[in-house]
């Protein structure tokens, strides 16, 4: 399936882009992360949370969504 991945803050500095479309097979978030870690050097050393369709999820969550976001530590306010 086709998903959109969004990158923010220091994660976007690592990926050098703010978003991309990826064709992935069904599976867990952890499988998507494996793909991204091999694609982007240094990503695995970064601290981030993952949102699927705007809700935080864990690595064990099954990929269902159209939109995945990699979110570094929040620092609003």
């Amino acid at each position: 399936m086709q998903i959109t991945i969004k990158y923010f803050g220091q994660i976007a500095e690592v990926t050098q882009k703010e978003a991309e479309q990826l064709e992935v097979s069904k599976g867990k978030i952890s499988e998507l992360l494996n793909i991204l870690n091999s694609k982007y050097d240094g990503l695995k050393h970064k601290d981030f949370q993952i949102a699927q369709n705007q809700e935080l999820v864990t690595k064990e969550t099954v990929l269902t969504g159209q939109e995945i976001a990699l979110l570094p530590p929040f620092s609003g306010g």
Binding site: F8, G9, A51, P73, S75
Partner: peptide, 26 residues
């Protein structure tokens, strides 16, 4: 205020006078 600091995906980039930066951590 505590809820929005912890739950809301906003990212602050602290800019220095020499145009270097670091990412803010709450």
């Amino acid at each position: 205020v505590e809820a929005l600091k912890s739950d809301v995906p906003v990212f602050g980039k602290e800019m220095f006078e020499d145009e270097s930066h670091q990412w803010k951590v709450n």
